[in-house]
Design a protein around this nucleic acid. Structure first.
Lengths: 235, 235
DNA sequence: CGCGACAGTTATAGACTGTAACTAAATCAA
DNA sequence: TTGATTTAGTTACAGTCTATAACTGTCGCG
């Protein structure tokens, strides 16, 4: 576990940080981002107001940490789902499994999902490791598209993605970590489409916009990824 | 215009309300929802703090009003786009035109779009006229799907939607206002899928998650709706 | 013309973020 | 072991914000 072989002080510090985050998550679940208040957290921890600033620079820093955690957690869930697949799993089944993993994660803790996809302030900070986490989430989807033969409808996207990979070395490297050379454009296009589908279906569901409608998010997401698999000609 | 034949007092009142909302929108655009502060609005209008409560019951009421406006505005944009289509427009072209109208609207004022799709608090209020507005936005999409022959991938969704329409009279009426009887399930399925696609593509773009990627949202959305049209076998 | 509704005011309470200045305790080096 | 230093924690305070209360003019209708 984390925290072993640390100086006792550091260990205690980490423990307190964890406790703070735990309470913050509860407040988040109860009342959304706006309900996360340092003063109330402090009271609950048994500390007095300003003491929390020893553990987090600001309220924003705390929220950023929660976002980071959530992203990493989601990425882990997807990675785990990918790892659990038998070696020869067909691309379509792979997509469905990964998509379901995303949805399950989000459905189990909507507030954390909303935190991830949540509206940044117009002057967006965009922490750079978020980008990395997004890639970690999306990466396992890429191999499923490697052998794809996209229909005409999505070909413009494939072209733009090919150009993107050609121009951005980091992206190209990332893509090539998941698919053989030459398939970058297709894989990235699949990835972006998968991302958009996930965001659309899961986001609406997490925000509760589907309540009262006669369907569950699972059916919708499955259908979307089935269509996506069809579009890329996957088995 | 609104405000004619009102008592002068009511007219003045409406004017002040409009001015307040205008400033609120500017604050929203500059710093997100969190930046909308009644006190600062009051200062800018030339009023003193509590006076604003004569015009809006609370900060939340103001934001709700902004949401309502934005929704209505978007619905109007879509409706206008639908009205501008030549009578015999093919379903696919209709979908593309309406989707583009949505995207254009959102791209021109991302903060307002984010306000609409924005994270509600976990104890969601869900103002009932929002539902109506959502239907107004989505309604014009429905006729395009009326003659669709969906592929196997989305058939589960069609079935759930058919069942929904069968169980919910209001929904059935709404659907039948746009498509002939018997096509409700298909149309509703198309509508939900369109909604999800719009939310996915536009939402990510409005939140700035596509910045730095080598594609523009338009290409992506067009591709998605082309695929959707393919899926429903539309011309 | 007079009275009631309404716009607006100041004062105030309460929640929250964040800083400053200070105290006590734990850690570490010599 | 001791003494300096870092670190956890404190209280006090400034500032912003929402919201209510109590009060004062003023508009406009009957």
């Amino acid at each position: 576990m984390t925290g072993s072989q640390l100086t006792p002080r550091a260990r205690y510090r980490e423990q307190t940080r964890a406790e703070i985050k735990e309470i913050a998550l509860r407040q988040l679940a109860e009342g959304g981002t706006a309900a996360v208040a340092l003063t109330r957290i402090a009271k609950e921890v048994g500390l007095s107001g300003p003491a929390l600033y020893r553990y987090f620079d600001s309220r924003d820093a705390l929220l950023t940490d929660l976002i980071r955690d959530a992203y990493a957690d989601l990425a882990a869930a997807v990675g785990e789902a990918a790892g659990a697949l038998p070696p020869g799993t067909a691309p379509r089944a792979r997509l469905q499994a990964l998509a379901a993993a995303c949805r399950d994660w989000a459905a189990a803790q909507p507030h954390r999902y909303l935190l991830i996809e949540g509206t940044p302030v117009p002057g967006y900070s965009a922490p750079p490791d978020t980008l990395e986490s997004a890639r970690a989430v999306l990466g396992p989807f890429l191999p499923a598209f490697a052998q794809g033969a996209p229909t005409a409808a999505v070909r413009p996207v494939v072209e733009q993605m090919t150009a993107w990979a050609a121009g951005d070395e980091a992206v190209a490297r990332w893509a090539r970590a998941h698919v053989p050379a030459g398939a970058e454009g297709t894989a990235l296009a699949g990835g972006v489409l998968a991302w958009t589908h996930l965001h659309g279906a899961i986001g609406l569901e997490a925000a509760g916009q589907f309540t009262g409608m006669g369907h569950d998010g699972g059916t919708l997401l499955t259908a979307q990824f089935d269509v996506l698999a069809d579009t890329f000609g996957l088995d």
